[in-house]
C-alpha cells in the first residue's frame, strides 16, 4: 500500500512539476502499482449482491449490482450477445423469428430450471469465456436467421413462464437492435445498442429498459469476483466466490503451488516456467474450497496474472469469510508487481 501510494504521490508530483514546467502532460506516464491489498466489495453473503472488478495496476475495485443488467452486447468485431452469467440466467432458442408470434405456448415443454443439478450447459454461455460459444447465436446480417430466444432471469420462476422474457436481436449500423418483452406481453419494446470500442460489452437491462454501466473499460480491469455460472461434471452449477479473468482483453493467469516457489520468493525469473491460461476460469474456483470438511482459501497456491497492459502481478487471496477472520462476500486480495510491461 505504502509503496504504491508513494508512487502515486510521486506521479502526481510529477504531473504538477510537469505542468508547471512546460504544460506538457503527455510525457508523464503513471507507473503501474507496485502492489497493494484490496477488499472487493461483493456486498456480503454466499450469493453476494455485487460483482467486483479489480484493476491491480491502479489499485482500484469497482462494484456493480450483479442483477443490474440482463444482456451484454459485444463491442468487438463479432456480433455477439451474452447472458448475465453472474446470475442464474438461462436461455433457449425458439424456432420462430417473429417475436410477436411467441407466447406462453412456446414455453410448453420447455424447462429453463437451472442449477442444483437442473438444466444443461446449452442454456448458458460458454463457461470458459469463449465469445464464439454463446447461447444466443452470432447475430446474423441476414435478419431472417435471427431467432427469438426465451430467457429466464435469476429472479423469475422456473415453473411460471409468464415471468420469462422473449427477445430477438438483429444488427443495426455498428450495433444491435433488441426486441424484447415478457413472454405473454403483446407490446414489444425495442432498443438500439451501439458498440463502444473501449469496452468489451455494452450492457442492457430489460428491467429498466436502458443501457447500464457494468464493466470498467476493457483495459481497466484484470479480474472480477462474483457469484457466477460455472459447471460441475456436465451440468451448470452456480459458484459463490468465483473469479473470472478479463480474457477478452488478453488477461492470462497461472496457478502456482507455493511448494514450488513461495509467494514472497516469486520473481520475474520464475515467469518463464509458468503455463498461462487465457480462459475466463483461469482463477475460477481454483483458489478455494467451499464444501467438504475443510473449507476456505487454499493458501498453498497463489496466482500470477498478466494484466491487459502486459504487467505481471502475483496475486494471493487473504480472506474470504470462511474460517479466516474475514467476511463472506468481502474477499481480500493481495498482489505485487513481478514484472512491469515493457
Amino acid at each position: 500500500m505504502k509503496l504504491s501510494r508513494l508512487f502515486l504521490v510521486l506521479s502526481i508530483a510529477g504531473i504538477f512539476s510537469a505542468c508547471s514546467n512546460n504544460d506538457d502532460d503527455t510525457t508523464v506516464v503513471i507507473p503501474p502499482s507496485d502492489g497493494s491489498q484490496l477488499t472487493l466489495q461483493g456486498g456480503g453473503g454466499t450469493g453476494a449482491p455485487n460483482t467486483a472488478y479489480a484493476d491491480m495496476s491502479t489499485d482500484k475495485q469497482t462494484d456493480v449490482v450483479r442483477t443490474s443488467w440482463s444482456l451484454g452486447f459485444y463491442s468487438g468485431s463479432d456480433y455477439r450477445v451474452i447472458l448475465n452469467g453472474f446470475t442464474s440466467m438461462s436461455a433457449v432458442a425458439t424456432t420462430k423469428t417473429d417475436i410477436t408470434q411467441v407466447g406462453s405456448a412456446d414455453a410448453v415443454g420447455v424447462s429453463l430450471a437451472i442449477g442444483q443439478g437442473a438444466g444443461t450447459l446449452s442454456m448458458i454461455d460458454d463457461v470458459f469465456g469463449d465469445i464464439t460459444k454463446t447461447v444466443i447465436a452470432a447475430v446474423s446480417a441476414t435478419d431472417a436467421d435471427n431467432k427469438v430466444y426465451l430467457i429466464k432471469p435469476e429472479t423469475a420462476s422456473a415453473t411460471d413462464s409468464s415471468t420469462w422474457y422473449k427477445i430477438r436481436v438483429t444488427r443495426s449500423s455498428n450495433g444491435y437492435t433488441l426486441q424484447y418483452a415478457k413472454l405473454t406481453e403483446t407490446t414489444i419494446k425495442t432498443a438500439t445498442i451501439a458498440k463502444a470500442s473501449e469496452y468489451n460489452f455494452v450492457f442492457f437491462s430489460m428491467e429498466s429498459g436502458a443501457n447500464v454501466s457494468v464493466e470498467p473499460k476493457k483495459a481497466e480491469w484484470d479480474f472480477a469476483w462474483s457469484y457466477a455460472a460455472y459447471y460441475t461434471a456436465t451440468f451448470p452449477y452456480f459458484f459463490s466466490d468465483f473469479v473470472v479473468i478479463n480474457n477478452l482483453a488478453g488477461v492470462q493467469a497461472a496457478r502456482v503451488d507455493s511448494a514450488t516457489v513461495s509467494y514472497s520468493n516469486f520473481a520475474a525469473s520464475d515467469l518463464s516456467a509458468l503455463t498461462f491460461a487465457s480462459t475466463r476460469d483461469a482463477i475460477g474456483s481454483k483458489w478455494r474450497v467451499t464444501s467438504g470438511t475443510t473449507v476456505g482459501i487454499l493458501y498453498n497456491y497463489f496466482f500470477v496474472v498478466k494484466d491487459p497492459a502486459g504487467n505481471y502481478y502475483k496475486l494471493k487471496f487473504i480472506s474470504m469469510g470462511l474460517n479466516d477472520g474475514g467476511s463472506r462476500g468481502y474477499p481480500v486480495v493481495e498482489y505485487k508487481l513481478v514484472k512491469a510491461a515493457s
Binding site: K316, I318, S319, L322, N323, D324, G325, G326, V332, E334
Partner: peptide, 12 residues
C-alpha cells in the same frame, strides 16, 4: 476455533 490466518492476523 479456527486457525490463525497469517495473511490478516485474524481467526474465526
Amino acid at each position: 476455533k479456527g486457525d490463525v490466518n497469517y495473511g490478516n492476523g485474524k481467526a474465526t
